[in-house]
């Protein structure tokens, strides 16, 4: 997961795109260290000390991790749980709706 996400954030850095996480780790210090160590280049809300039982995942009725929503520029939910190549395709489509033509290709990178 991490390499794909890192690669997306990097490739689409000059496009109207953002990857926003909702992190459900209980230990804030620990996840901060992980972010640094694994070079996770996206911003995340913290779901609080209750971890997966935290308020954001509860409101969003998340019962499995990871859960992914893809929103268009108007904040409308357009895709759910599109991952990997499906996510790339979805983003290509939504960005093209905004007049941005993108080609997403990922370099091989070992998971860390």
């Amino acid at each position: 997961m991490y390499p794909h996400e890192r690669s997306l954030v990097k490739q689409l850095s000059d496009k109207p795109f953002a990857l926003i996480g909702v992190n459900s780790d209980r230990e804030l210090e620990q996840i901060r260290a992980t972010v640094k160590e694994k070079n996770l280049n996206w911003r995340s809300f913290w779901n609080g000390p209750e971890g997966t039982g935290g308020p954001i995942s509860a409101q969003w009725n998340v019962t499995g991790w990871p859960t992914i929503y893809i929103l268009d520029e108007h904040g409308v939910i357009r895709y759910k749980n599109a991952r990997g190549a499906d996510m790339d395709k979805a983003l290509t489509k939504l960005l093209s709706e905004m007049g941005h033509s993108v080609q997403i290709a990922h370099e091989a990178e070992g998971d860390q």
Partner: peptide, 24 residues
């Protein structure tokens, strides 16, 4: 966010957003 800085999802209106519920 993880650094304690307040923000909103709606700050990202006008952008395509992948909202990723994750955990390490």
């Amino acid at each position: 966010d993880l650094d304690g800085v307040a923000f909103k999802l709606s700050d990202y209106r006008g952008k395509v957003v992948v909202l990723d519920f994750w955990g390490d």
